[in-house]
């Protein structure tokens, strides 16, 4: 095994820095790239839409007012974090923003009980929207 030389260390550090900057830049650039995502909720990565609709039906059973056309969407878009998420094209960023909104709901006690599950108000509205779509 050869010794670490100063040149080697600087090179490795530089490589790491370039990689980090490139990844961060890529994430930023990703926000600028328009994508064909007509349904906001369809663009959340990793989402199981059948499960979402099933949860949504339970939410609608307990909160029938949300079944009115646009009701869930209006409540969702009234949330600042969700409005920002809608204005973002990058699915990963969107997901992060939605997750932050969910965490804020829990912190503020905006919690909905659905078949025993404690979910955030945002999750309840998203699933209700999915069930009515």
């Amino acid at each position: 095994m050869g010794k670490w030389t100063r040149r080697g260390l600087i090179g490795a550090g530089g490589l790491l820095a370039i990689t980090g900057v490139a990844y961060g830049g890529g994430l930023l650039a990703c926000r600028m790239v328009p994508r064909h995502t007509p349904d906001f909720f369809a663009s959340l990565p990793g989402m199981d839409h059948d499960a979402l609709r099933t949860i949504g039906q339970s939410v609608l059973r307990d909160h029938p007012g949300l079944a009115r056309p646009g009701a869930a969407t209006r409540l969702l878009t009234a949330k600042a974090g969700i409005e920002r998420a809608i204005g973002t094209d990058c699915p990963q960023t969107r997901m992060t923003m939605v997750q932050e909104e969910c965490r804020a709901d829990f912190a503020a006690g905006r919690i909905v009980l659905v078949d025993g599950w404690m979910i955030s108000e945002t999750e309840a509205l998203i699933s209700a929207e999915a069930a009515t779509a």
Binding site: Q99, C102, R103, D105, F106, A107, G109, I111, L113, D115, G116, W117, M118, I119, S120
Partner: peptide, 19 residues
């Protein structure tokens, strides 16, 4: 359990089903 469930949600760790 509800308080634990809220804390888990707040920390983004998961969701709790009340039993």
């Amino acid at each position: 359990h509800m308080i634990l469930g809220a804390e888990l949600g707040k920390a983004g760790l998961g969701r709790l089903n009340l039993g």
